[in-house]
Design a protein around this nucleic acid. Structure first.
Lengths: 208, 208
DNA sequence: TATAAAATGATAGTAACTGTCAAATTAAAT
DNA sequence: ATTTAATTTGACAGTTACTATCATTTTATA
């Protein structure tokens, strides 16, 4: 038996069917959520619409939330970040990673992301789960930044910085969901630019 | 019937007993969580240890998480923040609010806070719920800051700034939980100072 | 002491998950 | 093509957080 490549562990009928089922589950779920709301939709319904048994559902998604949360953006963005030239400072690298990373997705995909994001913001449970995801990303970002700056991985300043980046991202999510005309990438870029500039307006607190 | 003051809506036997029950529930719950873990502790057990029925439990806390999350810090800090002189810039006001706000609590209370914070960080569900809470605080902070700066309440820069503040707070939580010797207030202060300085180290990305 | 109001507890549900095991499907070997 | 092994699936039976309802008890008031 030859050692199987972990990246493409052979695409047989089996693997193909599984991917199809996954996609179907996500699509049907989002459709039902859209039509009847998140809470009103039971896993039984999703399973039925996808023509599998409820018990099989949990072999594909460990929670109902995962249906909405799982996507391919995070890994892409993280790889894009790691691929940035080391002479950029962390924010510059992040900005570059965001614009190049998102460029890899079609408008269709970005629209779908937007729909999911809105759902995440409106359903507390989803919001919570997505915040946890972001929190995990925070730690990852902090590690990568620390490596870039040749600082220890638990460096306090780096951690704080990563937190600020994350908070800024949260704000962008909030802003974009109440301003549908705003472009996601452009808004992130603007927000990171503010962070890089050190929030100049803060210093004018008393200047009226 | 005289109009009752909303702050102390008459402290009869009734109100007194309710407060006692609330406290008992929280204490017993935290004890059980400590002894057997969060998930292994059922609401039935908490109710039994507190000598009430399970159905009564939900009249005191709407969720199991609320047992851990509810505290008096947020309102105190927010009032402290609002009470700061308007000639301080937002970060300075926040730093002052944090140190004066926390000064109002005993060491005992702060120790309890710490235990709860550690729990929140280690139990995903609690972490999620606390992040939602922080998210709500973000919006509140943004409003207050906008008022201070006489900017519109949905000002993007202010929102971004509030996000950064919040993210920094998250980092502090993380840092303090893995560095038990660190003082909470001092760490927050340090982190906010970095934010105020605009994360100077970021600019040295290429300077090795 | 009588009466109104509020708090409680019992009961019966729902829905998201978990675990187990046998049946069915697919991949690999002959 | 047929057998064999591995994987995937579905049925079933829990557990637990949480909701809704209603009778009973407890407290406040007149």
């Amino acid at each position: 038996m030859p050692p199987d490549e972990p990246e493409s562990p052979k695409i047989g009928l089996r693997e193909k069917k599984k991917r199809k089922t996954r996609m179907t589950l996500q699509q049907q779920a989002l459709r039902l959520f859209r039509e009847q709301g998140y809470h009103a939709t039971t896993i039984e319904q999703i399973a039925e619409a996808s023509e599998i048994s409820p018990s099989t559902f949990f072999r594909y998604f460990s929670t109902k939330e995962a249906l909405v949360l799982e996507d391919e953006y995070d890994p892409v963005l993280i790889r894009a970040f790691q691929g940035q030239p080391p002479d950029l400072n962390p924010i510059q690298a992040l900005r570059a990673a965001v614009s190049s990373g998102f460029a890899m997705f079609s408008q269709e995909e970005k629209d779908a992301l937007r729909e999911r994001t809105d759902l995440m913001l409106s359903v507390p449970e989803l919001r919570a789960a997505s915040l946890i995801q972001m929190n995990d990303s925070l730690l990852l970002i902090a590690e990568i930044v620390a490596d870039r700056l040749e600082r220890p991985r638990d460096d306090f300043e780096v951690l704080t910085f990563a937190g600020a980046v994350l908070g800024v991202m949260m704000s962008v999510q909030l802003y974009c969901s109440s301003n549908p005309e705003a472009d996601f990438v452009a808004t992130i870029d603007e927000a990171l630019a503010q962070l890089e500039a050190g929030f100049p307006f803060v210093r004018h607190g008393s200047v009226l």
